[in-house]
Design a protein around this nucleic acid. Structure first.
Lengths: 190, 190
DNA sequence: TCTATGATTGAGTACACACTCATTTAAGAC
DNA sequence: GTCTTAAATGAGTGTGTACTCAATCATAGA
């Protein structure tokens, strides 16, 4: 091996892509991403063959990061509701801490540049969380429907909650609390 | 006046934009939109000064259409839950009937080419629906939070529901029913 | 019918972008 | 220290796109 590829550069490119795509959308130029990453444009293409590959990798990376954040500090001992509330809390915390990452995920989620394959792989990160949901859902309004539906509901309610938290920071805590209550009632109430 | 602009052409352009943006995303070329609409590219620019103006108008038009669809056939006599269920039903019906319009709205909603002003104007179409929500929300989990939050929750749950209906049409009715139950519990349960 | 006005056309323009490639640079093997 | 190999560079290339404009055409009003 002559000169190895550097993980640092790869990460710098992904981080730059996050920043620039959050600002400018999926149409953000590779030239800008490279400049922000501190590498030449050509270098970007030695790490990612095409812009689409870069976007798909970024999507996966962020999905994985989010799913890991949700499971962090998840002590086993609590009951289902508490474990879900913790996951919700972590989700919201992550989204508030990294608004660009959240925005990028929203952009990429509706972009047709993300392949079905990538989306499927992204969902796999959430199997553990879906398992957490399963028991809470068993006797509620969603009992007739797969647990991934509850997972999607969790995602969309958390996103909606964070939108309002961001728009009206003074009442952020109210939204976070009410949002979780709404979510719990949605999946667990009969 | 020498030659009047034609509403038919304007509508044809908006319809073509809907179709093409649903297929290709916000980056769809104006040349393609014009061709699908059956007009010359130059004509597109006599009806909409820029592509951004076209996209913003399209967003407004679709938002308005959706809000009107939701209020259709809304007899006064029912109780709050029934009126909301009817609105939900109409929402889902609209989304299933016009999947391209739904997709376009999703694309435009996260695109930074839609101005804040346009988004605000789009929300105004939903004031009547927000009023409907207000009473149902009064004593539930969302009592501490503005009714537009309940409206946003309705939107995101309906979208999630339609995603699953589209992905798994055999159980579409189950999703529609469970989705509304989840929504009602989310906003009205204590 | 004639005329003035503005809609309609589509080839043309200026620019932006994803990706390439000849050249330079640097890391590892010996 | 030398050699080999692949990473790094950035000017260059081809393509695609939003928007323009001179010429043409259709309509409302006289």
């Amino acid at each position: 091996m002559a000169r190895p590829k550097s993980d640092d550069k790869r990460n710098a490119i992904l981080a730059a892509a996050t920043q620039v795509v959050a600002e400018q959308g999926v149409g953000a130029p590779t030239a800008t991403i490279a400049k922000v990453a501190g590498v030449a444009e050509g270098t970007l293409f030695t790490y990612f063959a095409t812009k689409d590959e870069l976007l798909n990798r970024l999507y996966l990376e962020l999905k994985l990061e989010l799913s890991e954040a949700m499971l962090e500090a998840g002590g086993q001992s609590r009951d289902a509701r508490d474990r879900l509330r913790l996951g919700w809390q972590q989700y919201v915390r992550w989204g508030v801490t990294y608004p660009e990452k959240r925005k990028v995920l929203a952009q990429l989620g509706v972009s047709d540049r993300i392949t079905e394959q990538t989306k499927a792989a992204g969902m796999r990160s959430f199997t553990e969380i879906n398992a957490m949901l399963q028991e809470s859902v068993a006797s509620g309004a969603l009992r007739d429907v797969p647990p991934t539906f509850a997972g999607a509901i969790m995602g969309s309610l958390a996103e909606t909650t964070m939108d309002f938290m961001a728009r009206d920071p003074a009442h952020a805590d109210d939204y976070a609390t009410s949002g979780f209550e709404a979510f719990w009632n949605a999946i667990a109430s009969k």
